[in-house]
């Protein structure tokens, strides 16, 4: 057994897996050997059950933390570049695990860049009828989920001069960053990916996430519909002209230094915490979720409706 563990340790080292991870993996194997022994398995049987150390290391190598000294450098690829004639465009992007960052640029063309260890493949990038489309390899076929886009970063450059009509971004676990854009309709969906948007001018925004966190910072919107299951929402230094609809199961919502005309909260157990948050009207529908607002300035906040089992609305000034 000692030999097995030693071989495994060496095999993991050969794959450049970091020391902390190696200790953790060895510990797991010691535990499994103990379990097998207590079930009365012979040494030989246990070794067959465990398999070859090299194969274990092989199976772990592609995702464990590596010793950074030897990590391969990510390279940047330009996937596509499009000259744009018109003044406004639509954007529709669908990712799976890739991180995506949108950037405003001075140039006249849209560029889709990708930073990854390997040459990216299977991505569909097109610009037709004034619509920019980026699609990660489809996950509908059974085998395709094996080739995940883990660790791949997308950078999408959009000329400053362009107005964006409809902006849609969906992703499974990839994060998305958006900074400084002017958008009419914004729509985002994520399962576990985080959404970070700042300095936006949006007419209508709508997003949905299961467990990702959402941060909206320094933005001006007409209206916002936010729907989350367990992810948290942060609205910071933003102004919402009309309404803000917040839907949550257990995620909490933090609103700071922001204002809105009306704020409607629909929650199971998620709470709303406001600090320097000034809506004109507020309504709460919840099981146990609360609304707590702490403001310096005394401004009237009208409570339109309150329907809750054990939740409450508190406004302190």
């Amino acid at each position: 057994m000692k030999t097995f563990l030693n071989d495994l340790r060496n095999a993991l080292k050969n794959k450049n897996i970091s020391a902390i991870e190696i200790e953790d993996i060895i510990k797991d194997h010691e535990d499994m050997i103990e379990e097998a022994k207590s079930e009365g398995l012979s040494e030989e049987e246990i070794l067959t059950k465990l398999g070859k150390p090299e194969e274990i290391a092989e199976g772990l190598a592609d995702f464990e933390e590596k010793d950074t000294s030897t990590e391969t450098q990510k390279t940047q690829h330009i996937l596509k570049e499009f000259e744009v004639q018109s003044t406004s465009i639509d954007v529709s992007v669908s990712m799976s695990t890739e991180t995506t960052e949108y950037k405003l640029v001075d140039s006249k063309s849209i560029r889709v860049l990708c930073r990854s260890n390997k040459e990216p493949s299977g991505y569909e990038v097109s610009f037709k009828n004034d619509t920019l489309k980026v699609e990660a390899p489809k996950l509908t076929q059974f085998l395709s989920f094996l080739s995940r886009g883990k660790g791949i970063e997308f950078i999408i450059e959009i000329p400053k001069s362009l107005a964006i009509n409809h902006f849609k971004h969906s992703t499974l676990s990839g994060d998305v960053h958006l900074d400084g854009f002017n958008i009419k309709h914004l729509e985002m969906n994520t399962v576990s990916g985080d959404i970070k948007v700042s300095k936006l001018e949006i007419t209508e925004a709508q997003w949905y996430t299961v467990s990702g966190d959402i941060t909206l910072d320094k933005s001006r919107l007409s209206s916002l519909k936010s729907s989350q299951v367990s992810g948290d929402l942060f609205v910071l230094s933003s102004a919402i002209e009309e309404y803000i609809d917040l839907d949550t199961v257990s995620g909490d919502m933090y609103l700071e230094d922001s204002k809105a005309d009306s704020c409607k909260v629909n929650s199971v157990s998620g709470d709303v915490r406001g600090k320097e948050f000034y809506p004109n009207k507020i309504s709460l529908s919840s099981i146990s979720g609360n609304i707590n607002i702490k403001n310096q300035e005394k401004r009237h906040i009208e409570i339109i409706s309150r329907s809750t089992l054990s939740g409450s609305i508190h406004i302190h000034t």
């Binding site: 059950k49 274990i56 199976g59 772990l60 995702f63």
Partner: peptide
């Protein structure tokens, strides 16, 4: 299947 297939999947 043997452990060397399952363990890495669990960890990943």
């Amino acid at each position: 299947v043997s452990e060397n297939t399952i363990y890495p999947i669990l960890r990943r």
